[in-house]
Design a protein around this nucleic acid. Sequence first.
DNA 1: CAGCGTTATGTTTAATTTGACATAATGCTA
DNA 2: TAGCATTATGTCAAATTAAACATAACGCTG
Lengths: 133, 133
Amino acid sequence: MRRKSKPVKEKSNLSSPCTQELDLYPCSKIWIEKKGHLVFGDGRVELFKAIEETGSINKAVHKLNISYRHAWAYIKTSEKRLKVKFLRYKIGGKYGGGATLTEEGKEFLKRYELFRKGINEMVNLKFKKVFRK
Amino acid sequence: MRRKSKPVKEKSNLSSPCTQELDLYPCSKIWIEKKGHLVFGDGRVELFKAIEETGSINKAVHKLNISYRHAWAYIKTSEKRLKVKFLRYKIGGKYGGGATLTEEGKEFLKRYELFRKGINEMVNLKFKKVFRK
DNA sequence: CAGCGTTATGTTTAATTTGACATAATGCTA
DNA sequence: TAGCATTATGTCAAATTAAACATAACGCTG
């Protein structure tokens, strides 16, 4: 019998790739790669948007309930591999510092969302067409 | 520095969710859930097709270079949760046994492929539209 | 009946991913 | 200058996932 151990950390607030709760439903995950490496995806979008909204990486990770350590690594690998400077960082100073989206970062996010939008809907529609009784 | 340990097992022959090798390219993964549990996806399709082609689970997993143990678990959970009997099993006898798709199984596969087809193309098209320079 | 190649499972081990903890550096403010 | 809330990293532990190993049962065949 499978022991379900109590999780030490509650679930993150990152949205799931499938929200429908019908009996049977389709899920989809979309992301962008470069030379075999993940460089961007829905998780990154949520993170960057939360940073912009709160003004700091720290506040954003608390809001999304993910670890700073890894959020930071995600940001850095995206910046390095995509060669896009998403954030302007400020260490120290008033309020301790913070991070805000660059124009380049905003532009990339806008493009990604344009690309992403409609894919879920299309998948759901196609699924219903084929699997409805 | 990241130590890249030698993998003990070479990569499986399951096809990747993204085949393009442009500088930047989109990937997509589609699957079907039921009450929060994965019940079907591209990996299952490949597995079932390989079983039909070779006549046994064993030959199929060798062809795809995945473990019998897990292929078996995948099949069983799909059958249990979807309440679809995909395979007709034969243990022992001439050639030791084997497994073949049931009519019900073939029908489900056909539907899934109808659903799946075109999604990759749509994703690629949408990506190019937005991210071309 | 022994051998073979299957299906069918339990158990153990390894690899990977994720979370937790620790700490330095920065530059405001009081 | 001490305190503070950040960014920036390293290291370690825990959890999860995947692979490997080990066998049993089955029913043909020679």
